[in-house]
Amino acid sequence: MAAVAAPTRAEVLSLFRSLLRTAKQFSDYNIREYTRRRAADAFRDNRALADPPAAAAAFAEGKKQLEVARRQAVVYSLYAPKAKSVMELKVQ
């Protein structure tokens, strides 16, 4: 089996952007923030992956998670919380 090429910098940043965009679609504050934080943390953890197969595997995992997030954003929108989180209230 041929070695998998590492994703390019632009591809990685694009995946990160897609994850952040999807995170914003969650109606629940906690899930929205968790998804955003989780994506940012994972990308930071894996930022220095030197060998191409590991980078490719992490990239593939990220793409899978993006699909999960997209599906869950739709499912969660059907059960949106009726009240806002206290964190979303504007400080007077």
Partner: peptide, 21 residues
């Protein structure tokens, strides 16, 4: 570069439009 992506997303939110990749 990851922070930059987050900052640009914050601009999108502030100005209410989507910035293409």
């Amino acid at each position: 570069s990851l922070d930059t992506v987050e900052v640009v997303m914050a601009f999108e939110e502030e100005f209410g439009f989507e910035i293409p990749d």
